Amino acid sequence: MKISINQLLADLKIITENNIEFAESLLDQNNETLNFRTSENSWSVLECLEHLNFYGKFYLPEIEDRITKSRFSSKKTEFKTGLLGNYFANMMLPKAKFNKMKTMKTANPIHKILDRSVVEKFINQQHKMFELLEKAKTVDLEKTKTSISISRLIKLKLGDTFRFVIYHNLRHIKQAENILIR
C-alpha cells in the first residue's frame, strides 16, 4: 500500500487527538465506572488504558530513539508499507464486530488495582506520540526502522510502527468506549 506521507501523519495525528479527547473525558468519571467490567474475564476501561500504557512504555522511547538516531532524512512524498508491518497494522484496526485477540501475560492488566493515574499517564503518552509524529516529518519513514516489543530481531519501517501502535491504541479506545456504553 502507498500513501502520501503528509496524509498518513495527518490521519495518525487525528486518531491521537481523538484518543486524548476521549481520555480527558474519562477524568470526569468516578473510579467505580472506570473499573467496571462487563464480566469477570473482561477488561475495565482502566485496564484497557493500562494495557496501552504498557506498550507505550516500550514504543515511545523506541520511536524517539530511532528518529533521533536516524541518518535517513525525509526526501519522499509517499510511504510504501512493508508486508509484515502492513499486516500487523491492519490486524490492529477495530472491526465492526470486535475480534478478540490473546495478549501476552505481561501486558494483561486484568484484576489489577487501578486508579485515575492510569488515564493521566495515557494522556501524557498520547501527547508524546503527537510530538513524535511531528518529529517524524524529518526522517525517512521507510528506511528508519524500529524494533517491536515481542522481538528486538524483527524490525518494522517507522511508518508501519506508527500505524501499528496508533491502530492498537484506537482498538482499545473503542473497546473502552463500548464498556462505557453498556
Rank of each mutant, 00 (worst) to 15 (best):
L132A: 07
F98C: 00
L84K: 15
N124R: 10
K100Q: 09
F122P: 01
N86Q: 08
K128G: 00
K145I: 09
L132N: 05
M92Q: 12
K135Y: 00
L84S: 11
M91D: 15
K100I: 07
H111M: 04
M129I: 14
N99H: 09
K105V: 12
Q126R: 04
K105W: 00
H111V: 01
K95I: 02
D115G: 05
M104I: 13
L114A: 04
L114M: 06
G85L: 06
K97R: 12
N90S: 13
L153W: 13
T103Q: 06
G159L: 03
L114P: 01
F88E: 13
E131I: 08
N108C: 07
S117A: 05
K137R: 08
Y87N: 09
K100E: 08
P94F: 11
L158T: 06
I110R: 02
K128H: 14
A96K: 15
A107C: 10
I154G: 00
E131Y: 13
K137M: 05
M104V: 14
K95M: 05
E120R: 09
K155T: 14
L93D: 00
P109V: 10
G82H: 10
N108Y: 06
N108R: 02
H127D: 03
I123V: 15
T81C: 07
G85E: 09
T106K: 13
L156D: 10
A96R: 13
N108F: 05
E78S: 02
F130E: 01
K135N: 03
E142M: 03
T146H: 10
T146C: 15
I148P: 01
A136N: 01
K76R: 11
I113Q: 12
L133G: 03
A107D: 09
N99R: 08
F88Y: 14
K97N: 14
S149V: 15
N124L: 11
F98I: 11
K137H: 12
Q125I: 10
K157Q: 13
S151W: 15
E131M: 12
K137W: 01
L153M: 14
P94M: 11
T146R: 07
N124F: 06
E120Y: 07
L156M: 13
R152Y: 07
L133Y: 03
F130A: 06
L93F: 06
V118Y: 06
